[in-house]
Simulated scan of single mutants.
Amino acid sequence: MQKVRAFAPGVIMIIVSLVFLSQAFTMEKASITDPAGGSFLPALIAFVMMITGITVLFQERMKLKVEMSETHHKVIEAEAETPDYENTEMTMRQYSLILTYFIMIIIYVLLLSFIPFIVATFIFLSVSMFFLRGVSWKTNLIVSIVSIIVIDLVFSKLFHIIFP
């Protein structure tokens, strides 16, 4: 069970990236190689996520090999001198946080079909910052508004990208 849990994040990243990539390929009138096209960024994110997932799988595989090849006779002093960073594991709370945030991203993407990009992004940023509990509501709203203005100026005015 421990081995399956170790490989789960990498497998999930690869599966999600394949779903994103398939959706990027099915967009109408959008070329995956055109940076101004609507499918370029989702495809780029999918490729990065896939590479990250594969990297996580290889790292976990190497870690498992090292753990299996080590002898069970370790010197106590050696363990005390070197910190044990390899045995850090995610808790169930951390997994639920990641899953909840992933669901929020899916809801954001679905909202883009019904409401304008700027409104959906403002809602997503505000809810995300509240969910991650990093800042007060006042700071949350200011950062969300400034982010939306910067995104709009850079992408729609500078690069002439049309948002959904």
Rank of each mutant, 00 (worst) to 15 (best):
V66D: 12
Y101N: 11
T82Q: 06
A80E: 08
I98L: 03
H73P: 13
F47C: 10
L64N: 11
I45P: 03
V66W: 02
I118C: 02
I107D: 05
H72K: 15
K74M: 11
A120N: 08
V66S: 11
K65I: 09
A120S: 13
D84L: 08
Y101H: 13
Q59I: 13
L64F: 03
S113P: 12
M68Q: 11
A46M: 05
E89W: 12
E89L: 14
I118Y: 07
T121V: 02
E81Q: 09
F122I: 14
T71E: 15
T88V: 15
Y108M: 09
M68C: 06
F117V: 01
T55R: 12
I107H: 02
N87G: 08
A43K: 01
V119E: 09
K74H: 12
A46P: 04
Y101A: 09
I76F: 09
P116Q: 12
M68L: 09
I98E: 02
Y95A: 03
M92K: 15
Q59K: 09
P116E: 04
I54D: 01
E79M: 06
L110F: 12
L64Q: 10
L111D: 00
P83G: 00
K63T: 05
R61Y: 12
V66E: 10
Y85S: 11
E70P: 01
F102Q: 05
T121M: 07
Y95F: 09
I118A: 09
L112Y: 01
I76W: 13
M62V: 14
P83Y: 04
E81W: 04
F124R: 10
Y108Q: 12
S96K: 01
S113K: 15
Y95V: 04
I51P: 00
I115Y: 05
M68V: 02
I123V: 13
T100C: 01
T71H: 12
E81F: 07
P83I: 07
I105M: 08
L44D: 04
L110C: 13
L64V: 12
F102A: 10
V75Q: 06
L111P: 06
E89S: 12
M104P: 01
I118F: 02
V56C: 07
I105Y: 05
Y95H: 06
T55M: 10
M92Q: 14
N87A: 00
D84T: 11
V119G: 00
Q59M: 15
S69P: 00
P83R: 11
H72E: 14
L44G: 01
M62P: 05
T100I: 02
